[in-house]
Design a binder for these strands. Structure first.
Lengths: 103, 103
DNA sequence: GTTATGTGTAATAAATATATTACATGTGTA
DNA sequence: TACACATGTAATATATTTATTACACATAAC
């Protein structure tokens, strides 16, 4: 049994979700974890581009990754979805806004 | 008694909230509605810039506006917060991703 | 050794988003 | 008339994000 982590940075999450590719990536990782090259083929985007997007998602804590070694000995970076449940309300936004750097 | 509208476009909301100014604008409008020039002074940003940000917030349905006439006869555009309560989960993101244009 | 697969990153180009400046209009008051 | 304060927008500059291309390295199979 897993539970969503409560410590997401709202600005990072907003930045992460503000992109159609990254929404599709999260959708794709729901069914199962996947490694970068395969995920790039599935989503039909280039691997460097996918890596850039995955980095943003990982920084926001929405996905995580680790190195695994395949049956035939190749190192593969596998990404998995981090469960999350974030509520967006005016109060939550205000709370996040208060934490922003002054200028 | 007011209730959050259920029909927010997730992409538009994400785009709207992905900016520190716009988070502060929402925070500021919580306590009370305000007209553009005053809000610009309160937040210490230029009026054209504020207008640009308000436009994005309005497109996302997070604020609304109307023209009011002040006591001394000046037309003022008053913005008010639209209440919202949006839940961000992998399933919700996937649901939004499925509605995105194919390419 | 060559081919196919995986990893990683750096340099660059293109597209968007952000921010400023300048100007236009209208109203009420000194 | 001139001033203060409100509206609106257009043109431009700057910054950031997105996307591509080109590398480098490693392992397994032919």
């Amino acid at each position: 049994m897993s539970s969503p982590k409560p410590t997401h940075s709202l600005p990072l999450v907003m930045a992460a979700l503000d992109n159609p590719h990254r929404m599709r990536i999260l959708a794709a990782l729901r069914s199962s974890s996947n490694y970068v090259s395969q995920l790039a083929r599935d989503l039909e985007i280039s691997r460097p581009l996918l890596i850039m997007h995955l980095k943003k998602l990982e920084e926001a804590g929405l996905v995580s990754s680790g190195l695994e070694v395949s049956a035939d000995g190749k190192a593969m970076r596998v990404y998995q979805l981090e469960d999350f449940d974030i509520r967006l309300t005016p109060d939550e936004v205000a709370r996040a806004a208060a934490k922003l750097p002054k200028d």
